[in-house]
Design a binder for these strands. Structure first.
Length: 551
DNA sequence: TTCCTCGGCCAC
DNA sequence: AAACGTGGCCGAGGAA
């Protein structure tokens, strides 16, 4: 057997022996509809993809195993080679992963797949869990493809944005002109000639010495003062953030220059299921936090467009459907749900509707959300009851489930210790306060878990359905013989919780926009059947990402 | 030098 | 509007 041989197996016993990656890629090209069952998509798929194979479906045993660990804890444990713990860390190279995988036979993979199927069958809601595992695995394919294809990103536009805001790129170790000028101005206002505004300790001391009544250097606290240092300081913080998070160094590190007619690309590692709730995490480049001000650097290739789609108020919608709250669902029927709350006479303004609803989802109690919450609770008792129940379960240390059955972890050892410490006779006030605070914190976590996690499931189904539709569009394209990126096909290039971006030839953009909308409604039916809930999207066909921003 | 925590701020 | 959910990542500053 050649070194680096894979353990990927095709379904239905098509491959009962070990395949080399070349053989696997060949099969995947010939049979694009086959479902692949492998230990880990992040390890296995890049090799196939590089060889031009884009399978329709897969089972990612690692991701599915992690879900089942919590969702079906009474099932027998999975094998050690599956390593269903945290995602591999940076020290473990791809080569390590492959070497490990070569010790795993196709029979081992088949056995683990059977174990997982049995675990699903023995769970309370096998149908839902099966859907979750399929969606999770589809997401794993998409994550690898989006990294390989990359997000179109213009280095020159990015550089122009930086230069306009900060001045020309300075030599290494120097501040850009604009930041330097602001630093001098701030130091002057505070009478501290050598002040480093990047040092919270120095800055806080200087601010207090100048009579500002602040306990931290955070923006919101500083901005409440009317001292002349406030304006330049806030400006400095904003620009310093831009420079350190997404400046020229970021550009050099994360945006690969185009070669031979191919444009520049931003690449990150998407980590499906990387968040406890089931949301994706990312590794590298800060892809979860690209500032809106930089969206102008995301530019479609010549002759191509970006189809940008944003799901409106996704969390209240999935909450309405989960709770069978037809009143709340009706408020958002084919339109802005917050505006619907105003029209229903539940709250007076849209901002109040939004802050109240977010308070319900996050466990807020104070301020405006505390004022609005009782009205929401009265108008939508089923929806609010669902999240309130989830919070109570969490406060008692219990676990909760999303709609498809992703299960929250139990609180850790220190949490239980704190609760026990407060329950004994000798417990003092501090023990009790600590225990109460931690219990409430865990309640807010489980409260949000059910909604954030179900929203993530909807988004996964949305994206998986869209990928399926984009593939069938590709099959009708004139140059449908290959499946390499950048050869004329629409493809997903960005995903962020409730927002997706598709890069597409201009002539197919409208068809893609339609597919995006239809996929959203299909995802809603997949999860919630005939319950009357809609999932409106803001969809825009643009050349630059920032052009999609309404208003 | 390297590793770690913290404050702060970006995204949803 | 306020300090209430999930993340990633930066520089500062302390510890090893």
């Amino acid at each position: 057997m050649p070194s680096g041989a894979g353990v990927a197996v095709a379904p239905d016993g098509a491959a009962s022996e070990r395949l080399t990656w070349q053989q696997a890629a060949e099969i995947a090209r010939i049979e694009p509809e086959a479902r692949w069952i492998w230990p880990d998509t992040a390890t296995c798929y890049p090799r196939l993809l590089a060889a031009g194979a884009r399978p329709a479906r897969c089972v990612d045993l690692r991701l599915c195993g992690r879900i089942l660990q919590l969702a079906a804890p009474e099932a027998p444990a999975g094998p050690i080679w599956l390593d269903v713990g945290p995602a591999p860390t940076a020290e473990r190279t791809l080569l390590d992963e492959l070497d490990l995988a070569t010790d795993v036979s196709p029979a081992d993979v088949a056995a683990e797949h059977a174990r997982q199927q049995a675990a699903v069958a023995g769970s309370p809601e096998p149908g839902r869990l099966r859907l979750l595992l399929a969606a999770e695995s589809a997401g794993a394919l998409i994550a690898v493809e989006m990294r390989a294809d990359g997000l179109p990103w213009s280095r020159s536009r990015h550089d122009a944005l930086l230069t306009a805001a900060l001045g020309p790129r300075p030599a290494a170790g120097y501040r850009p002109q604009v930041l330097e000028r602001l630093a001098v101005e701030i130091a002057g206002h505070l009478g501290a000639p050598h002040l480093n505004p990047d040092s919270p300790v120095e800055l806080l001391r200087a601010l207090r010495a100048n009579g500002l009544d602040v306990t931290s250097t955070s923006k919101w606290e500083i901005s409440r003062s009317d001292h002349p240092v406030v304006a330049p300081l806030l400006q400095y913080k904003k620009l310093a953030r831009l420079l350190s998070a997404n400046g020229w160094t970021w550009l050099d590190t994360w945006v690969e220059p185009g070669t031979g007619g191919r444009a520049d690309r931003f690449r990150t590692d998407y980590v499906p299921g990387g968040v406890v709730t089931g949301r994706w995490a990312t590794n590298g480049g800060g892809a979860l936090q690209i500032p809106k001000s930089l969206r102008a650097a995301v530019v479609a290739d010549p002759g191509w467009r970006l189809v940008v789609a944003d799901a409106a108020q996704i969390e209240p919608r999935v909450l309405a459907a989960m709770a069978h709250d037809t009143e709340l669902a009706a408020a958002g029927q084919d339109r802005d749900l917050y505006a619907g709350l105003v029209d229903a006479g539940v709250v007076d303004t849209r901002p109040h509707a939004k802050v109240g609803m977010l308070g319900a989802l996050y466990g807020g109690t104070t301020g405006q959300s505390g004022v609005v919450l009782p009205r929401l609770r009265q108008a939508y008792p089923r929806a609010l009851g669902l999240v309130d129940d989830a919070a109570r379960v969490g406060e008692r240390g219990g676990t909760v489930r999303t709609w498809l059955g992703r299960t929250s972890p139990a609180p850790g050892e220190s949490w239980r210790t704190a609760q026990h410490a407060a329950a004994v006779v000798e417990a003092n006030e501090a023990d009790e306060r600590r225990a109460r605070t931690q219990a409430r914190n865990w309640g807010r976590f489980t409260r949000n878990f059910v909604v954030q996690g179900t929203a993530a499931e909807w988004a996964l189904c949305w994206m998986a359905e869209l990928r399926r539709r984009l593939r069938s569009m590709s099959a009708t394209a004139a140059d449908g013989a290959t499946d390499l990126p950048g050869q004329g096909r629409p493809h997903l290039v960005f995903f962020l919780h409730d927002e997706i971006v598709v890069h597409t030839p201009a002539e197919q953009a409208e068809a893609v926009a339609t597919a995006v909308r239809e996929s959203a409604q299909a995802a809603g039916r997949l999860l919630f059947g005939e319950f009357p809930i809609t999932f409106p999207l803001d969809v825009a066909v643009v050349e630059r990402y920032d052009q999609a921003d309404p208003a």
